[in-house]
């Protein structure tokens, strides 16, 4: 079960501040989308519209072609997991999991129990007494086990240690194989999570910068590695995004496609051409947009 999302000329204003400016985009069903943007770019605003937490100031937010706001059939298909403030939440973790299974039509309790074990989540504890990482794990358990056709994780990993984040990522990929759905993963940990993404959506200052398959995005640049002097010569007239040097070896991220001629030239110079890091591309593209 997976559903598509469509935003059609969506603007969201908070008094005079425009959080989203005329955004139109389609998120394909059954794909894992990485949503990246700088702080205050409008990521959470965008996600809160898809989850029908609020209504756009203008434009349409559609799930499988129907407006999502106050549409019970469509709202039910969207699970929005975000860094929720649990200071006042005195219920036990297992109660919140039970509530999700009560409301979510595709909730899988066996899968939830599997995840609880994976994250070692103490479900008999009050939620406000859980550590930040465990609160995030609880959110992730609910989000994954709900198996909502559109599952949104907005920085859901906050406070999780590296091994827990690794479990989170692996579980997404594993469950996506068995029960494909539309994932939207909003993150700042671009370099850590980029391997998960089928598609990448970048927004900046409330506007859509791009919405592309990961592979075509990767082809927008390249990494060139080899002897420092050779790399410098080869990349001299190219747009450099990032450079790292270790001893005599240098690696430069460049922006712009490398044609076959250039690739051959690099080969004869003994340079190694690899994919560009999404992180560098993201920094470049959002700088360019500002």
């Amino acid at each position: 079960m997976a559903a598509s999302v469509q935003l059609d000329h969506v603007t969201l204003k908070f008094k005079k501040f425009e959080a989203l400016k005329d955004v139109s985009l389609t998120l394909e069903a059954g794909k894992i989308h990485g949503l990246i943007g700088r702080n205050g770019a409008g990521k959470t605003s965008l996600l809160s519209l898809i989850a029908a937490f609020r209504v756009p100031t203008s434009g349409k937010v559609l799930v499988d072609g129907s407006p999502v706001f106050e549409n019970p059939e469509k709202m039910e298909q969207v699970a929005f997991v975000y860094d929720k403030d649990y200071k006042e939440e005195t219920e036990k973790a297992k109660k919140l999991i039970a509530l999700a299974s009560h409301y979510r039509p595709h909730f899988d309790m066996d899968y939830a129990e599997h995840l609880i074990k994976r994250f070692k989540l103490p479900i008999d504890k009050s939620v406000n007494k859980l550590s930040k990482g465990m609160q995030s794990a609880l959110n992730v358990v609910i989000g994954l086990a709900s198996r909502a056709p559109i599952t949104i994780f907005d920085e859901a990993y906050l406070g999780m240690d590296a091994p827990a984040r690794e479990i989170f990522y692996k579980e997404i990929l594993k469950d996506q194989e068995e029960h494909p759905r539309t994932f939207i993963l909003s993150t700042h940990l671009v370099s850590e999570m980029d391997y998960l993404f089928d598609r990448v959506v970048i927004i900046d200052q409330g506007q859509l910068v791009l919405n592309e398959p990961f592979e075509t995005l990767e082809a927008r640049g390249a990494s060139v590695t080899g002897a420092a002097s050779d790399v410098d010569a080869f990349t001299a007239d190219m747009k450099q995004l990032n450079a790292q040097q270790l001893g005599g070896t240098k690696s430069v991220m460049i922006y712009g496609e490398l044609d076959e001629l250039k690739r051959q030239e690099a080969h004869t110079m003994g340079l190694e051409i690899g994919p560009v890091a999404l992180q560098d591309l993201f920094i470049h593209l959002t700088e360019e947009a500002s």
Binding site: M75, E76, A79, Y103
Partner: peptide, 12 residues
């Protein structure tokens, strides 16, 4: 807020 987060409409 719990309901809306669980995909229940405001009306329901």
């Amino acid at each position: 807020s719990r309901h809306i987060q669980q995909g229940i409409s405001r009306r329901d």
